[in-house]
Structure formats: C-alpha cells, structure tokens
Design a protein around this nucleic acid. Structure first.
Lengths: 241, 241
DNA sequence: GGCGCTTTGTTGCCTTGCGAACAGAATCAT
DNA sequence: ATGATTCTGTTCGCAAGGCAACAAAGCGCC
C-alpha cells in the first residue's frame, strides 16, 4: 500500500488521496509535481492551534487527528483525516492556520505541499478549489456532529464509531491502538474503554490483544455505533460524490 | 437600536452588522441595496440541516442559534450568531446549505440577501470575500472549541459563558430567557440550570425573575465562565479585528 | 378576588462515568 | 530465566448530573 503512494514514474506521479484523485489528469500531475512524499509517524504533532502552516498534508496511508486542547483536561479529538481528506483545508480561505492541534494517529505516508504552491494551484484550477471548498464544508459538518455526539452518546457507541472511522482510514482490518490511547481520543477513562471494548469483544465484533485491534464485523460495529458515523459518511458522500 | 438598522435615507442604507461595516463604502451601499430588512422572531426556524438556502442573513439586533439535532436527544446548540456574524457563511464555499439547524433565539432584525445576489457581490468584491472567509474560519474555531467545552466543562461555567455570549449579541443588559430555555441550549436538565443560575444570583452576577435576566457584572461572569469564552473572542479579534 | 398557567425552587433516587488503585497477563530486555 | 514494562481486567468509592415529582411563587385572565 505504501508502494502505491511513492513508487511511480517521475513523469506521472500517482496518489491514493481521494481529493487529489478528483482533479483532472493534467492539473493533478502539475499538483503532484510540487508535492513531496513524507512519512507520518505515530504521535508526531504537525501543528498547534494558531500555528502558521508551512505545508498542507494529503494523507495517503497515514491518518491525522484534529484535537482541541483545554487547560486542565486531556485534549479532545474532534476530527479525523485520512486519505479521504487533507490537513490544511482552511488554506482555501486564505488563512494560513488552523484552530486545532493536528497529531499523527496512524503511521503511514502523506503528500506534503508548500502553502504557496497550494495557493497557486487553487488559483489556477477551479476544480481544485471546488474540491477543497467542499471538503472544508464536510469538515464543518463533522465538527458539529461530533460536538453533539460527544455530549450525548454513550462510550460504547462512540467507541464503535471511532473504530469504524479508523478502520476506513487504516485501510486494513488490523491496527495498533491501546485502550489508553482510545480513552484519550474519546476523552474518557481508560477503564471505561476496557469495559466498552470488552463488550464489543464479547459480541465478536472486534478482537484485540495488547494494542493490536482487529475488526471482525464492520456491520456489527455499524449497528453498535451511534447515528453519527452514518451521518458524517452521508455528508461526505453527498458532497464529494 | 432597531432604528439604527432600518431608518436610513434610501440612498445610503446603513447597517449595524459588523461584517458589512468592514466593506468599503461603495461596495457596502451596493450590497445593502440588494438586502431586505426582516424581523427575526423568537423561535423561528430559518433552516434545517441540509436545506438549501434561499437567503443569507446578517443579524442587526436579533440573534440566531446553530443547533445540531440528534435523534432521541434534545438538539444541542453549537454556535451563536449575532451582529458580529452571519448565517450562511458556507455560501462563500459555493455550497448552498448548512449542516445545522438555525433558530432565532433573540428577537430583532436582520438583513436578508438572496443567495444569487450574495454570490454576485462576493465575486466582484474581494474584500467581501475575504471578510466572509475569515468569518467562516472563526465559526470553525467556535465549533471545535464548543465541542471540547461541552464535553469537559461544568454546567456553571458553561452557563456563564453562554450568558456572556448572549449579552454581547443582545446589546443590552437585560434579556428574556427561562431556565428551561437555557437548559435546552446547553443540553442539560432544567433543574441543573436553576441550581447553577442560583449560584450566579447569590454571587450578584445576574438577577432574574420569570425569564427576565439582567447581567449585573460582566467581569464576574467572565471569571465564572470557562476559558472558552475568551478563546473564541480572541479568535474573532485576531481574524476580524 | 379567584383560577390557572408559567416559572422557579427543591428533593430523592439512580445511572454514568470519573479517580484511583491494584492484580494479572503478555512482551521485552538482559 | 528473570525482572521490568506495558497492557488489560477489575474493583471500590465518589461526584456530577440525569430523571421524576412536587411545592411554591409570580403573573395574567376572567
């Protein structure tokens, strides 16, 4: 999978990022020529709130969490970005920063493009602008949905939703996540995750051991998750196609 | 105050909306010529999630809540729009809808402009585009902050924050809000509001009786509120101010 | 003045989930 | 092997806030 992303002839670099795949061939190639493949390493912080961006990132196989830090509390995850999206969507607004912290959450690769180059491409390719605009809208929808979800839905439902989102972005049935890590993402106690995960395990929806989680039944997880998973997917499908 | 908004010579209509006040005089006049003053009535629903917009609204003295409905739960408020902002910021992305419900929450007036006219002005006035882009960014910041706030902060802090936000937008020390209404906004029990409001009353920060709330000490409310009030204000000031 | 509606005050029970602590199991380094 | 570390399972007490019910007070309407 990593191969798909970076092994390509110099003339026609390819990508697995869904946003970039929407561009016309010619513009995509021009865009990719300005990109640089980089490794995303688990735990790496790509930016802090109000940091100026130097680059935008288009994940290929890795994925990135958007987190809101509050003093005196663990940071809360409010968005997840994989190869269906990008980090830096607000650049299309002409604002070179983001109000959140971005942390690599799944090791893998991404394409990185300097802000100036991105802006140049946006100015010259209406289709690119359109794609980024739409993605920004989806991000907005995701944020608002997540706000309500975090308030009202129970840990088990939220865990199932989160596993599904990760499953989509990991592009594999199997990924590394400890209970502690999940607790941090959802903003809950570690022991609450152990209990909720234990229930999912009992229902044979997932298997796990020492941080290695395997999804056994997507369908089951979808039934166990709150409506928010489907809602966000529907928004994405409606706008991005 | 209502007078400011709608009494103006036909040649130079004026506005109290901060976004529109940022436009150059000539463009503002052209913009206002396409606007229609409308009354916002408490409780009125301006749009539902995924509705197509017919208009964008620029509040002058009224204000509007953005709410996320979840099945089986009361809808949760995630954003508040007064004369510092607008309803329909996503139009600048070329998307004629919003992922949330918009409900009038403070009776007053707004300027309403048809979507097509707004787009025409955005295309011809880079300053307008810039203002709307920046406002959209602020909205994004507000959403993410609110998501974390709703998760972690206590009812008393959130109530104080919410009263401050309303105070700013009501442009008066006095407004109509029952405990039940506050409970719906914050997504909590009515009796929890009675208790939290009782504490603020004991501290002489507010006074209230049968839905009529008076702010006695902004400073005190700021101290009683969580960091989120200041954070959102700072974002707004940094980008718009 | 009396009736009824709305708003606020208060109480008690219950659930969820937090905080903290500890035990066992798997993995890793030496 | 053996000890250290990391991860998972489990427990207990506790606090915040949900849920429900009801009392009292203010206000408007006849």
């Amino acid at each position: 999978m990593l191969q798909d992303a970076i092994v390509a002839s110099p003339k026609t670099p390819s990508t697995t990022n869904h946003l970039l795949l929407r561009l016309a061939r010619k513009e995509r190639e021009a865009f990719l020529a300005d990109c640089e493949p980089v490794d995303l390493e688990f735990g790496q912080t790509l930016c802090e709130p109000d940091d100026a961006y130097g680059f935008a990132w288009f994940p290929q196989t890795g994925f990135i969490s958007l987190m809101v830090p509050l003093t005196g509390h663990p940071p809360l995850e409010v968005g997840l970005i994989g190869n269906e999206g990008m980090l830096g969507a607000t650049l299309v607004l002409g604002i070179d920063q983001v109000p959140m912290r971005a942390v690599v959450q799944g090791t893998g690769t991404a394409l990185r493009i300097p802000v100036a180059a991105l802006k140049r491409h946006v100015a010259s390719d209406p289709k690119l602008e359109r794609v980024l605009n739409r993605y920004l809208y989806v991000l907005l929808a995701q944020l608002s949905q997540t706000a309500a979800c975090t308030r009202f839905h129970e840990i088990g439902e939220r865990l199932a939703r989160w596993l599904l989102m990760t499953h989509d972005r990991a592009q594999a049935d199997h990924f590394h996540l400890t209970h502690q890590f999940l607790a941090d993402m959802l903003g809950v106690q570690r022991s609450a995750i152990t209990i909720a995960a234990g229930l999912l395990k009992d229902k044979r929806l997932i298997r796990y051991s020492r941080g290695e989680i395997t999804v056994l039944s997507r369908r089951g997880l979808e039934a166990a998750s709150c409506e928010c998973y489907a809602a966000v997917m529907a928004d994405y499908a409606q706008l991005m196609g």
